[in-house]
Simulated scan of single mutants.
Amino acid sequence: MNYGSKTTFGFDTDKRKLPLSKRLVLYAYDKDTGEIFGRKPSSWVQIGLFYTAFYITLVAMFAVVLWVFFQTLDPRTPTRQLEQSLIGTNPGLGFRPMSNETHSTLIHINSKSVQEYSVWMQRLIEFLDVYKKPGLTPGRGQNIATCNYDKPPGKGKVCDVDVKAFDMCTEEHRFYFDRQAPCIFLKLNKIYGWNPIFYDKPDELPHDMPHSLKDHIKNITNPDELRTVWVSCEGETVSDKELIGPMSYWPIPGFPGYFFPFENSEGYLSPLVAIHFKRPAKSIVINILCRAWAKNIVHKVNGINRGSVHFELMID
């Protein structure tokens, strides 16, 4: 059937006079010309082959560029380190156990309820599992070394963290959650390549370091043991200092220097300090500030606490 001459829009002149609905049907498939959406099947095949080849080439080029890029990266060594990194050179502290509530730093332990304090116990047990079971950390089983101040880890080795050294702050003792004298664990945040500058001279200790920690450092007889990133915890206000009560630190009040620097070695785990709050005030929130001490750890930056961690403790 002849409808007349073609126009630039792909329809014959007479076809353009048809109703819109019929024109749409003819555009989708014109049985007279065999065109589908204005093109013959052979034309659609050519276009399909072109774009298939085009996108395959594009994906291949992207894959090659990505492969070349990854060849320049070391999976264990970050490209930007220390001052050039987003983390910077001032490590902070972390604490465990933590609340499941977002942004909450309150540790509220009801020692009278097994069901309630068992929840906090389980969080600590899960946190310490990787320290107790080397197989949970890839590569840790083969390269653990027992380190001390006279025996740092050898090449390719990582220091063991002995959970038995936490004295009463263990799962077997229920972390003393059932005796209104809980144990809280501290860890120093990892910064690749960071080396602490130790307070290795007792007469150069900072003026704001707690007296109890100063006394501990001054009583050390082995000079190698001064190579430690020290840790202290205090009540944040005058009233908190009275409410917090006596504390003990296990195994020592600090992180031994042989754990540093962190170089992302396979199987590495951060050292821990367990703080045993022996007689904190009951049924009241106690604000606690724990600080790490090294010459290159700054505690205040533009009025904001750094190199430390704040949490609240409430015991019932």
Rank of each mutant, 00 (worst) to 15 (best):
G38C: 08
T102I: 02
D162R: 13
L213D: 03
N305W: 11
T79G: 07
K164E: 02
M121E: 05
E204F: 10
E101I: 10
T228P: 02
E116D: 15
W293Y: 02
I87C: 00
K295E: 06
Q81V: 15
S43Y: 05
I87E: 00
P253D: 01
E101Q: 11
D30P: 01
L24T: 05
D162K: 13
Y51W: 07
L49N: 00
V163P: 04
R39K: 15
M61K: 10
L226Y: 01
D129M: 15
K17L: 15
R80E: 06
W44A: 10
N222Y: 03
S283L: 14
K241F: 07
S248N: 11
G94R: 11
I197P: 04
R140E: 04
V301E: 09
D160G: 12
S248Q: 12
A63Y: 02
I144A: 00
C233N: 02
K22Y: 09
P75S: 12
V68R: 15
L188P: 07
S104Y: 06
R179F: 08
Q122F: 09
L136N: 14
S104A: 10
I109A: 03
P41I: 05
K300F: 11
F54N: 04
Q46N: 05
F95H: 10
L272R: 08
E126G: 13
M1E: 03
L82M: 10
R174V: 00
Y176E: 13
N143F: 00
V229A: 06
N100G: 15
K241H: 08
D32R: 10
P153E: 01
N287C: 12
K218Q: 07
